[in-house]
Design a protein around this nucleic acid. Structure first.
Lengths: 229, 229
DNA sequence: ACCTAAACATGATTTTTATCAACTTATATG
DNA sequence: CATATAAGTTGATAAAAATCATGTTTAGGT
């Protein structure tokens, strides 16, 4: 958990960097990165950026979780991706002159570093390894979204919920899954009421246990099985 | 329409190249491209590559259309993208050492050029403009898939069908839309029977007209309106 | 031009999921 | 610590879409 308000992070000993696209940086580049980045404390439900606005740079998650979402015609959120520490958010749009096509908002209090567009593009231009990493990451996410689309089109809500809970179990590592029912519904693509009913079924089947908002995963194996079916 | 069997294409005067990622190539690079590429004739329903196999290079569509699809647990196809002339297919996976996560199959007889992985990566390494174009393209597709996900999750099948028909009207340019009902159903993410019934509704509302398999778009404006609602 | 398999179409029915309304429980803030 | 407000829950009902069965048409191969 992040400290009260602003906490300064040094790239040199940032554990989140080690699982990020900056993991292969040499000492010089890490030093450079440390100079150009700025750290900020974000409180819960604070937006990083909003669909339609112009990007100023990228966000590197040190601590915390961020939801990336689009809005449908009636303004309903569709969560496309959940980012956690080590992820760099908002770099896709750095390569075109376009506005954000999605929005990003923190799900909990977070420490997030910011790198301006110019500085980031300089890094990419001068570092072929980073460039390669970015291309790989873009490709990986494209494949991930193909699976997302297929699941949404072909799986039942029950199957998608099981699948999402396993994914969330990974994202929340040692903690319990802590999303509002609405966010969870907007992630699996269903109505909040439907989600709640299915979650109740899962509770009765001893697959999960709820502690108010928090969801404890009890039987990951069986959830995986349900997701697969 | 492509000629019977093999047709040799010269990159220098290829009109498809002009709307491709290779559009900004200088004379030297076009000559280079022309030397490294090989042309093939593909008949209808011929696979370019299959999910799980190892990529050997990229495919540049001169003439014809290709469906990119994933398969769900029960083997059902989910069409993720429809590619037409000028598109370069299969380059996402060039940057990782991974296998294809999707499959690609022609929808009609096509003329398609092939560039080997090494040759393609050389091009990318030595041409910063191409590199930038690829990154932009990857980002654009990522945004496109976010919209795809949102539509799938929030719109009714009727809305998605209207939306898909408008998109297909663009892809098929002057021709009529020519996809099997099953492919169309697998694109909008519904059962074939449901699609047929909705198409019937659209016919009765004078939005489209069918000529056996072919679909003629009569009222694009109204379809767009239905898609939006 | 024929013929056969695949594609298309329609009806009946069931299942899944959304919607609406009402009520209860948390949670954040003064 | 009270309390207002947002989040969560439940039930009844409607709507949307899938499934199954069966018949018809179309298109590709010889």
């Amino acid at each position: 958990m992040p400290e009260k308000n602003h906490k300064h992070i040094t790239c040199q000993n940032c554990v989140s960097r080690e699982k990020s696209l900056f993991d292969t940086f040499c000492t010089t580049d890490v030093g450079r990165l440390n100079k150009i980045k700025s750290c900020s404390y974000f409180k819960k439900n604070q937006p990083l950026f909003i669909e339609g606005s112009l990007p100023r740079g990228v966000y590197c998650l040190n601590q915390g979780k961020v939801k990336i979402f689009a809005r449908g015609e009636e303004g309903k959120e569709q969560i496309i991706h959940l980012a956690s520490s080590g992820e760099i958010v908002g770099f896709r749009v750095m390569f075109s002159g376009e506005t954000y096509k999605v929005s990003a908002t923190t799900l909990e209090e977070s420490n997030i570093c910011f790198i301006s567009k110019n500085d980031f593009l300089d890094l990419v231009d001068t570092n072929p390894t980073l460039r390669k990493g970015i291309m790989q990451e873009l490709s990986r996410e494209l494949a991930e979204r193909a699976t997302f689309i297929t699941n949404l089109a072909q799986k039942s809500v029950r199957e998608r919920l099981a699948s999402a809970l396993v994914l969330l179990d990974d994202i929340y590592e040692n903690e319990m899954v802590n999303l509002t029912r609405e966010d969870l519904a907007n992630f699996i693509g269903t109505a909040t009421e439907t989600l709640i009913r299915l979650l109740k079924d899962f509770k009765e089947e001893n697959l999960v246990k709820t502690h108010a908002r928090q969801i404890e995963i009890l039987d990951r194996e069986r959830l995986l099985y349900i997701a697969g079916a």
